[in-house]
Amino acid sequence: MNLSDSLQSYFFISAALLGLGVFGLLMRRNLVAMLISLELILNSASLNFVALNRFCLADKSLGQVFTVFIVALAAAEVCIALSLVLWLYRKKESINVEDANELKN
């Protein structure tokens, strides 16, 4: 059995990335660390797309196009989230989510 040629091994890595990302999202209380966990989850999704693209699709550009979209949306999300984090830090001198419990000021 060839490990790098089987769909299951890529799915295993991607499921592990998703599990670690959810673990970090639940455990950490630092906004930047939660953002990093979110990046792990997005990466597991794109790894799944590319693996299925190689092993299960006839049109080999479909999964790659979707992964390009995921990367672009991740960039947009990080851009907004980091500007909000900096704004929150200027307001509260802290980037702990438990300090950010109100929407207005």
């Binding site: 790098s4 790894l47 590319v50 190689r54 080999k60 992964t67």
Partner: peptide, 14 residues
């Protein structure tokens, strides 16, 4: 690591 896995999956552009 994920980028290297993409190379394993024939997706060099990604």
């Amino acid at each position: 690591g994920v980028a290297a896995l993409f190379i394993f999956l024939n997706a060099e552009f990604l």
